[in-house]
Amino acid sequence: MAYIISGLRNLRKRVLVSATSGINIPDFIRLNTPTTLTFTPDEDVLTNLTVKVVYSEAKDKIETLFQLLCSLNSESALIFCNHRESAERTSALLNEMGIYSTFYHGGMEQDDRERALILFRNGSVTYLVTTDLAARGLDIPEMKHVIHYHLPPHAHEFVHRNGRTARMQTSGTAYVILHRDEPRPAYLDKSLETLELPTNNRLPKPPEFVTIYISGGKKNKLNKVDIVGFFSQKGQLEKGDLGLIEVKDFISFAAVKKAKADAFLNRIKDEKMKGKKYKIEVAR
């Protein structure tokens, strides 16, 4: 950032935004007598966010995480770990236990990072296990649950992670999984509700959608309308069978109802879109 800003010789205006204060603005920003606007949430009207503590009897919290996920009515959840390796391991453990999840962290190839988010956003994956890479700014509609599998080291990270839910006028819950002997961080208010997990939950329902990969994008002159047209006409998909579509430069992704996907792929196997043959298959 310092490198980029130092290269901007004629910078006339700087606008900084954050959800947390108390950070020092580094000198390289050369902030010039800023107007500071602070809109902290009103204590009384308090936000739509509820924070609950879930105690894990075992030091390894995986069983508690499993039970928690099973109690969320198959609704989507974002699970935070403190390290890349633990995000991958936790996702793998959940998959072994029968809960389909994927992971997203900064050690992945960029293609895989974007693909993981696309799958999560379009409902092909219900649970995303991640690091603080996903803590800031990401806007995922209808995200009702944020789970702190590992405790964030600082209060501000706790705020940013929680901020992935209860956005705009919606409500959401953040769950903190705490081992009995684990020291309780200062940012966890004493008055927080403790959640007792029912133990006889069923496994969450599998995702409703599956993501279809298309080997063409904007630079192949494909747009959303082309894809919707092809999927509904040649693929005979009805309106509700088609979910989010994301068109990138050279590839695209479209969410299709899982129950319809096989028949759909069969139907379009030899068809052309705008006169060209593209590879269309279930995204890995």
Binding site: R14, V15, L16, V17, A19, T20, T35, F39
Partner: peptide, 26 residues
């Protein structure tokens, strides 16, 4: 408020909660 401040000559530092619409604000 952000719109008003950013249109002035000074720099702006906006602190607002997560999910409150900061992207559109700037």
């Amino acid at each position: 408020a952000a719109q008003k401040a950013i249109l002035q000559d000074n720099d702006t530092f906006l602190i607002a909660p997560t999910g409150s619409g900061k992207t559109i604000a700037f």
